[in-house]
Design a protein around this nucleic acid. Structure first.
Length: 478
RNA sequence: GGCCCUAUCGUCUAGCGGUUAGGACACAAGGUUUUCAUCCUUGUAACUCGGGUUCGAUUCCCGAUGGGGUCACCA
């Protein structure tokens, strides 16, 4: 096989979608697998929807996910430029060539006329289609009108009664009838190309061998095939990747039903590695069915033709599980760097390294840090009655608290073994109910019923603060 | 609605003519544990329906139904 070249071609029209990132991963992995190149191309041909800083944001988020490209806006591979707005002359010339060869034609229809035609077709319950009003204007006449400054677009002259077939790596043969295809606009009146023209021209010029893109492009692929044929260019291999459905399985994952931007998941405490792993196993399975997969393993094993051809639900539960797996795999040092952005300003940073081992296996996302640790720096707020678990008498709890305070005060060495020994002795000597006694202490010390292991938590709290908390608990009862 | 894609537990999947239909997440129960979590064990749970082809269909073919995508001077 000749050198594999894949690409991802996002538009700087907003935040990158998780679906785009998942598609990007597949393009990246496939290129790496074959020692080829992965190209990042910016499709900024819609100047109306473009957002400021969009190009930089795209590059940043790809890097945040730990991925990179071999050629792109900032990395020339001699096929540049990689930003479409810098390639306008190329597209215009391509469109003109098509017109000269009779494969495309000038169209002077106003937007108003187009909209009227469409309205009428809809009223007649017919599929909306350009009525080919300008298709047969003699070239000479059209060129004259263009020269006189009349506004125009260039449309593809779609052949009639033709069967268009292409082979999709995932789905096999897909066939369309050309009669159902609109005379697609190739060059807009502002001189910019449409996606259809630009993508074909660039994929050809940049020698892209495999076009892996979202399933939503299947129905425009015949237009692209027609263009490749009109130019007499080789057609790349297509693989249309299933779209993500909402977690409830209903409809394409969309902004309306929650956060879908690739960045928002990282901002909510999902690890990039967990996200990538999740993308890998949605719609694809490793041969040995293993689900926790490293990028290296994925690159080695990924095969586009093994992708499921069905759209898949974005199962947050599974993502949560994977994220937990990846969090638990981190060293404390790694966890520290990852979690720092999520640490509340009120948290005593000097305690961070002591606290992390206590909460690591309890984190679903990094953003859970706050909820799991706020009692370390916030005075517990709880009802006195919650100290009275298991129908125990108030007097007994007071006795337990007093004895525990005494015992802790008399500790000269503040260490986990010493503390644990002292309190366990107390419990055994008095034969207090284990569950009741420890839960009561837990609530007195933290205000929470669910916490990391009690003694370790107490050690981190510190001797003075712990005694203060226990004393406060006592005060609530007397 | 037209066109295109698609169909195994709730979800993601393994299966590629003959299987007790396997795994993971989720869920439930139990064990470990002073709580929660982790970890371990077990369990509930699926081949959309109807026709063919075949000795035999979850598997191949056709149709229906369901789901998804797409029908812009957006990508």
């Amino acid at each position: 096989m000749t050198c594999v070249r894949t690409r991802m071609a996002p538009s700087p029209t907003g935040e990158m979608h998780v679906g785009s990132m998942a598609t990007l991963l597949k393009n990246y992995a496939f290129a790496k697998k074959h020692g080829g190149q992965f190209i990042l191309r910016i499709e900024d041909t819609d100047k109306e929807r473009e957002v400021a800083g969009g190009v930089a944001a795209i590059q940043e988020i790809i890097h945040r996910y730990g991925l990179d490209w071999d050629e792109g806006p900032d990395k020339d591979g001699s096929f540049g430029p990689y930003i479409q707005s810098e390639r306008l002359a190329i597209y215009k010339q391509a469109a003109l060539d098509l017109v000269a060869n009779g494969k495309a034609y000038y169209c002077f229809c106003s937007k108003e006329r187009l909209s009227d035609v469409k309205k009428q077709q809809l009223a007649d319950k017919k599929p909306p289609h350009y009525d080919r009003h300008c298709r047969n204007i003699p070239l000479k006449e059209a060129q004259k009108r263009v020269a006189e400054g009349e506004s125009y677009v260039i449309r593809l002259k779609v052949p009639e009664n033709q069967t268009i077939t292409f082979t999709d790596l995932i789905r096999g043969q897909i066939t369309f009838n050309s009669n159902l295809i609109d005379d697609q606009i190739l060059l807009k009146s502002d001189g910019y190309p449409t996606y259809h023209l630009a993508v074909v021209v660039d994929d050809h010029l940049m020698k892209i061998t495999h076009v892996m893109r979202g399933e939503e492009w299947i129905s425009s692929t015949p237009k692209h095939i027609l263009l490749y044929q009109a130019f007499a260019w080789d057609i790349p291999i297509f693989a249309h990747i299933p779209v993500f459905l909402n977690p409830d399985g209903k409809g394409k994952m969309s902004k309306r039903k929650g956060m879908v931007s690739a960045a928002s998941f990282l901002d909510r405490g999902y690890l990039p590695e967990a996200m990538l792993n999740f993308f890998m196993i949605l719609g694809w399975a490793k041969k040995d069915q293993q689900e926790v997969i490293s990028l290296e393993e994925y690159i080695r094993e990924f095969e586009p033709s093994d992708l499921s051809s069905n759209s898949v639900a974005f199962d947050i539960q599974k993502l949560n599980w994977l994220n937990g797996v990846y969090i638990r795999k981190l060293s404390i040092e790694q966890l520290k760097t990852h979690i720092l952005p999520f640490v509340s300003a009120n948290f005593p940073l000097e305690k961070l390294e002591e606290v992390l081992p206590l909460i690591q296996e309890r984190l679903v996302t990094l953003a859970d840090f706050d909820q799991l640790t706020k009692f370390f720096y916030t005075t517990p707020n709880y009802e006195p009655t919650s100290l009275l678990q298991k129908n125990v008498s108030k007097e007994l709890v007071i006795e337990e608290l007093k004895a525990t305070i005494d015992s802790i005060q008399s500790l000269t060495i503040w260490s986990l073994p010493h503390l644990e020994k002292a309190i366990r002795n107390l419990q055994e000597k008095n034969d207090w109910h284990k569950g009741q006694f420890f839960m009561m202490l837990r609530i007195a010390a933290t205000g929470e019923k669910a916490t990391p292991p009690l003694f370790a938590t107490m050690i981190v709290l510190g001797q003075d603060l712990l005694i203060t908390r226990l004393q406060e608990a006592l005060n609530k009862l007397v």
